[in-house]
């Protein structure tokens, strides 16, 4: 009887440790966006994006500081933070979603749909992103691109600057989640 209890205890603790290890966190990930117009191209990059994936539930969460986007021109960065995104009022963008039909045990490249809610500037929108998932150097690497419509997030662009900013912004991301496996 004692042996059975010990075995059960071992099984429970093993399954618990599996649940803990299925959460992978990373905090130096990249999100960039581009606005292409005939007047000018605007590009910005954030290299300090935080993300967690839960492999047991296929859930994903992403959080980033809007004022950590770096632009080539300081004036663009100032306009972005003060006039468009209002990063003092809305400091973070958050995404919470699910990786549909994802099998973490697959070691080859797989393209999966990530579906969830993106919150930015106090507005939450449903987003679906095709994501390429690969296994590289003991890590899951998620890469992809998607478009964001400026109007969807109530971003007010002054009439004078309308020709400078694209109506649809192209966003790109790369997240690398290291696993403990050697």
């Amino acid at each position: 009887m004692n042996k059975i209890i010990a075995l059960l205890f071992l099984l429970v603790s093993y399954s618990n440790s599996k649940i803990v290890s299925t959460q992978l966190t990373t905090n130096q990930e990249q999100v960039s966006f581009f606005s292409y117009t005939s007047v000018e191209n605007i590009e910005a990059k954030n290299n300090q994006v935080l993300s967690v994936i839960d492999l047991s539930k296929n859930k994903i969460a992403i959080s980033m500081l809007m004022n950590a986007f770096v632009f080539k021109k300081a004036l663009m960065q100032e306009h972005f933070n003060e006039s468009y995104i209002e990063s003092d009022l809305y400091p973070k963008a958050v995404f919470e979603g699910e990786i549909l039909d994802f099998d973490p045990s697959v070691t080859t490249s797989q393209i999966k749909l990530v579906k969830g809610m993106l919150s930015m500037r106090g507005i939450t929108k449903e987003v679906e992103v095709e994501t390429n998932i690969t296994r590289e150097n003991n890590a899951y690497v998620f890469t992809g691109a998607f478009d964001l419509v400026v109007k969807d997030f109530d971003i007010n662009i002054p009439p004078l600057l309308v020709p400078n900013i694209a109506k649809s912004i192209a966003a790109k991301f790369r997240f690398e989640y290291p696993t403990d496996e050697k």
């Binding site: 905090n27 300090q48 935080l50 959080s63 500081l65 004022n67 950590a68 770096v70 400091p91 973070k92």
Partner: peptide, 11 residues
């Protein structure tokens, strides 16, 4: 200092 996620972010 840019703020806080899981860490304090400094650029």
């Amino acid at each position: 200092c840019k703020g806080f996620l899981n860490d304090v972010i400094m650029l």
